[in-house]
Amino acid sequence: MSKPTDSVPALRRAVRVLDMVKESARPPLAADIARQLDLPRSTVHGLLAVMVELGLLEKNATQGYRLGTRLLDWVGGVTEKRDLVTEFYQALDGFSDLDSFTVTLTLLEGMEVVYVACRNSATVLGASFRVGMRLPAIFTATGNAMLAEMDDTTFREWLTLHPASTWPNPLTPNGIRSVTTLVREIAEIRERGYAVDDEQVHDGLWCFGAGVKDYSGRMVAGVGVSLPQTDLARYDVAELGGRAVALAQAVSTRLGYRNMGTDSLGGMR
């Protein structure tokens, strides 16, 4: 079998350079990099110049290269997501009253929510959740909870970036179809303190969602508590919403957030 053609050799070379710089005892010179990686000097000089320009590498006083500060931004983003998932699961361990529910953690990415953590219940929901799954934010409880956590200016900016003409078709007959309906839904979420997916993602599936904030008060995620519509009559709806809020607050607290009594949902903005 022939070897696949490498369509992005420059990217592979850049990664090799970063690995070498990281492992070097002292900042290597361009000549050192060319020799150790067995690359043409002209290629290495061009690559290093671009990597310095992009902040991936920095030059020191002796013309050696060290890792750039831009990499710290990337590391921080990855660490933040890993910490968020860890804190979610640790907080969830303290909520035995959620053992019979499917509980999820999502991030808002543009028009979608992406599922980054999930604990499925033994109850058949009619829909399965998995890490990495994406759904339109406007149909999900976690997505609408995160939209409701935005201030009015940020929410209007989100609507401008994602006009109704770009929205996907509803997944069920209950799905939100207009800006007017979404704005009304956001107002109701802010008033009661939690979001409700009343069979918008899947027929027969309900979900209650609330937003998670980090130490700075920035909304970073949403938690969802899901159950079959057939089990809904066993609970008070407000109580289920309260369970989602309590979990979201617990995760927020673990992330260092301390101002939930003054600027959380529920008309307290």
Rank of each mutant, 00 (worst) to 15 (best):
R190C: 08
G175C: 05
G211M: 01
A137M: 04
I186R: 00
P168H: 11
L56E: 09
T62Y: 00
K213E: 10
A221Q: 12
D73R: 15
D231H: 14
N259V: 04
I189P: 08
T86G: 03
I138Y: 04
R35N: 11
V196T: 02
C118E: 14
A233R: 14
M111Y: 00
M219D: 03
L92A: 10
M133D: 15
V196E: 02
E149K: 07
R130N: 04
N60C: 06
D19Y: 08
P4E: 13
T153M: 09
V196G: 00
T102I: 08
S178G: 03
L182D: 08
Y257M: 07
E80Y: 10
L159I: 15
A91V: 12
P28D: 04
V50F: 05
R192W: 02
S264G: 15
M133H: 02
T180K: 04
Y194L: 05
Y65H: 06
M260G: 15
G261N: 07
D197Y: 00
L147C: 01
V196C: 06
M1L: 13
A250E: 10
E58N: 10
S100W: 06
F88I: 11
G126E: 07
A91N: 06
T230Q: 15
F129E: 00
A246R: 14
T160G: 12
K3S: 08
L247D: 08
S24D: 08
N174H: 00
L255G: 05
S100F: 05
L171W: 11
M20N: 04
A141N: 00
L57G: 03
Y115H: 11
D38Y: 08
A10Y: 13
G222Y: 05
V220I: 10
V183I: 15
I186S: 01
F101H: 12
P4Q: 02
L57N: 02
D214A: 08
V220S: 02
L240Q: 10
G224P: 06
A148D: 07
I33A: 06
T104C: 11
P4T: 13
T142F: 06
S252Q: 09
M1F: 10
E191K: 13
T142G: 00
V220N: 02
L54D: 14
V50Y: 08
M268Q: 13
V223L: 05
N120T: 14
W167Q: 03
G77C: 09
D97Q: 13
E87D: 04
N169C: 07
P4A: 10
T43M: 04
M20G: 02
M1R: 05
S128Q: 14
V114G: 08
D6A: 13
V78C: 05
S216H: 08
G110H: 01
T262E: 11
K59C: 09
V75R: 15
R130I: 03
G193P: 01
L71G: 11
M219N: 14
T230F: 12
G222K: 08
R190M: 09
L105S: 09
L72N: 12
T180Y: 08
A25R: 15
R12Q: 15
G143P: 03
V78N: 07
A164T: 14
M219F: 06
V114T: 15
T62G: 02
G267N: 06
M150K: 07
Q249F: 04
